[in-house]
Design a protein around this nucleic acid. Structure first.
Length: 508
DNA sequence: GCAAATGATTTGTT
DNA sequence: AACAAATCATTTGC
C-alpha cells in the first residue's frame, strides 16, 4: 500500500537511474523548488508528490537521502511534505538513525498520511523497540517484549485511522470456518475454499491455511488426547506419562470434522493396539496372532510400525488392499454430521474391542484408524465409520446376554479401559440409546469372546453361531447393504448394525 | 510471566 | 498444486 503517494499521472523529473551520482539532477531541482521564495514554483501537491518519489527512490542511498531529509525538514512546506507517506518514512528513519528517536516520534505523530501507513506503523514500532532495547540493555527483544512494547506505545491514530487490525480472524469468520469443518469437510475443495473466502472476506490462501492449521491441530489434539506408545520406552518416558488425555468435552471441536482419525481417547496402556499414525493412508492393517492368551506383553507382530506417506503395510495373506472394500470416505458413504453426533471420544478405543473379538476368534483382524475395520476372522468385513464404531462399542459392552465374558486369560487387567470406566459406561449407554439399545452401566471394562467362531457352534444363548459373509451381508464395495429382513442401510452404519444384531443375538 | 492459541511461512513430498 | 510437518511470530487468557 502506498497511501498518500499519489504520484501517478504527474510529470516529474526522472529520478531512477540518476540517483547514484553525487549530484542528482532531480534532487537539485527539487531543492531549488523548496527554496522558492513566497511559494513553490510547482503546485504544492506536485511538490509533495515529487518529494515522495525522491524519498522512495533515494531511501537506500544515505549520501543522497541525508541532504534530502535535511532540506525537507528545513523547508517551510515541511508540514505538507510530511503528509506524504514516503517522505515521512524516510525522514523519520533518518532521524531514528541519528538516534533522534523523540524527534522521529514527534514527526510520526504529526504527519497526517491519508488512510494511514503500515510502514509508518512499523517504523514507529521499530523506534520503540530500539528505545526498549536501549533501556533494557539488550540487543534483541523477544516476541513478547515486542508485543508489550507495542502495547505500551501504540502508534498514533493518524498512522492507523482504522485502528490496529486484530491479528486473529473475527469470531464470525472463525465460526463459519469451524462450522464448515465440522459439518462439511476439513478439506474443502478449491471451489469450496473460494466460496468460503468470499463469504468470510479472507483470501483463498488464508482459508487454505486455516484448514491446514485446523487439520494439523486437530491431529495434534488427538495425539495428545490419545497417546499411543510407539515403544516400550515411550510408556515409561516422562512425556508419555505426563499428559493424561483431556476430557473430550473440553474441546467442542474435538471430534467434529475429523474424518481421518478416530475420536476416542485412549488409555495410556492400550498395549497391543496400533499407534495412531498421522497418515491418511487407506489402510493400517495389524496382523494379530491368536496366541496372546495371558500375555500382556506386546507380541512381536504387534510392534508399532511407522507408516510413511500412506504406504500400505501388509503382513497377512488376507490383507491385500486390492481385495478390500474401499475406505468409507466420501460424504455419501460417511455422513459426517451423523458420525459427529454419535461420536464419543470418551469411549475407549473401539479397536480394542474388535481386536479382542478377533483375538478370541483366533483370527486375524486389521484395522485402519477410525475408518475401517476389517476382521476376516469373523468372516466379516466391517467398515463402520467412527460413529458406527462408537455404537458398536457401546453395544458390545453388554457382557453376559450376548455371550461376551471376561476371560482374564486374554485381557487380564482391563488394559483397554483403565481410566474411569464409570463415565465410559454412561457414555456407552447414551450412545447405545441413540439406536434404541438399552445399555446397562458397564461393569467390566473388558470383554472378550469366550470362544472363537469355530467353537461357537452351537452358539451360546443369545449369541449367534459362526457367521458367514453371506449371512452377515458381506459389504459390497457399494454404499448399500441389504439385510436379511430386506432393509438396506448405508455401509456407514452397517457395521454398527451387524454388531448390534450380533450382540442382541438376532443374527445368524 | 507463562502457556496456549492462532495465523503465517518454509520446506519437503506426492 | 495440494498437502503435511515443522516452525515462527504474534496474540490472548490466566
Amino acid at each position: 500500500m502506498r497511501s498518500g503517494s499519489g504520484d501517478e499521472g504527474v510529470s516529474l523529473p526522472q529520478v531512477v537511474g540518476t540517483q547514484r551520482g553525487p549530484t542528482c539532477l532531480a534532487m537539485q531541482s527539487f531543492l531549488q523548488l523548496l527554496r522558492g521564495n513566497g511559494g513553490p514554483s510547482l503546485p504544492l501537491p506536485e511538490l509533495v508528490t515529487l518529494a515522495g518519489r525522491l524519498c522512495r527512490d533515494l531511501q537506500d542511498d544515505p549520501t543522497q537521502v541525508q541532504p534530502l531529509v535535511t532540506a525537507v525538514l528545513d523547508s517551510q512546506f515541511r508540514l505538507y511534505l510530511l503528509d506524504n507517506a514516503d517522505v515521512a518514512l524516510v525522514c523519520a528513519s533518518v532521524l531514528a538513525q541519528r538516534e533522534q528517536h523523540q524527534a522521529a516520534c514527534r514527526l510520526l505523530e504529526g504527519c497526517q498520511v491519508p488512510g494511514g501507513s503500515p510502514k509508518l506503523v512499523q517504523l514507529w514500532n521499530d523506534i520503540h523497540y530500539r528505545l526498549a532495547m536501549k533501556r533494557l540493555g539488550v540487543s534483541t527483544l523477544t516476541p513478547v517484549q515486542k508485543f508489550r512494547c507495542r502495547k505500551r506505545n501504540p502508534p498514533p491514530a493518524s498512522l492507523c485511522p482504522n485502528g490496529l487490525k486484530s491479528r486473529n480472524f473475527p469470531r464470525e469468520v472463525r465460526q463459519k470456518l469451524e462450522d464448515f469443518a465440522s459439518g462439511v469437510s476439513t478439506n474443502p475443495s478449491k471451489a469450496e475454499r473460494e466460496d468460503l473466502a468470499s463469504e468470510t472476506h479472507l483470501t483463498t490462501e488464508q482459508v487454505y491455511n486455516w484448514f491446514a492449521n485446523y487439520r494439523r491441530r486437530q491431529r495434534a489434539l488427538m495425539q495428545r488426547a490419545a497417546p499411543a506408545p510407539d515403544s516400550a520406552e515411550d510408556l515409561t518416558s516422562g512425556e508419555a506419562s505426563r499428559h493424561l488425555p483431556p476430557q473430550p468435552t473440553d474441546h467442542p471441536h474435538l471430534g467434529s470434522g475429523l474424518v481421518d482419525r478416530p475420536q476416542w481417547s485412549r488409555p495410556e496402556k492400550s498395549g497391543p493396539l496400533q499407534t495412531l499414525e498421522t497418515t491418511q493412508g487407506p489402510w493400517e492393517p495389524l496382523a494379530l496372532t491368536p496366541d496372546l492368551s495371558g500375555d500382556e506383553t506386546m507380541p512381536k507382530s504387534l510392534a508399532p510400525r511407522s507408516l510413511q506417506g500412506g504406504e500400505i503395510h501388509q503382513e497377512g495373506p488376507n490383507h491385500d488392499p486390492a481385495t478390500l472394500p474401499p475406505v468409507c470416505s466420501g460424504p455419501g458413504l460417511c455422513p459426517l454430521a451423523a458420525a459427529n453426533d454419535m461420536l464419543d471420544p470418551s469411549l475407549a478405543a473401539p479397536e480394542s474391542w474388535l481386536m479382542s473379538l478377533a483375538l478370541a476368534s483366533s483370527k486375524e483382524v486389521s484395522f485402519q484408524t477410525g475408518q475401517l475395520i476389517h476382521s476376516r476372522g469373523l468372516d466379516v468385513t466391517m467398515r463402520p465409520t467412527d460413529a458406527a464404531l462408537a455404537v458398536s462399542f457401546a453395544a458390545l459392552r453388554e457382557p453376559s446376554p450376548t455371550g461376551f465374558a471376561d476371560p482374564p486369560s486374554i485381557n487380564p487387567q482391563g488394559t483397554y479401559l483403565e481410566e474411569d470406566p464409570g463415565s465410559c459406561g454412561s457414555q456407552a449407554e447414551q450412545q447405545a440409546g441413540n439406536l434404541q439399545v438399552t445399555q446397562p452401566p458397564a461393569q467390566a471394562p473388558n470383554f472378550i469372546l469366550t470362544q472363537s467362531p469355530s467353537d461357537l457352534t452351537p452358539a451360546p444363548p443369545g449369541f449367534p453361531g459362526p457367521m458367514s459373509a453371506v449371512e452377515l451381508g458381506q459389504p459390497p464395495p457399494s454404499s448399500q447393504v441389504q439385510w436379511s429382513d430386506g432393509q438396506t442401510s448405508s455401509d456407514a452404519f452397517w457395521g454398527a448394525r451387524m454388531l448390534l444384531e450380533l450382540s442382541a443375538g438376532s443374527l445368524g
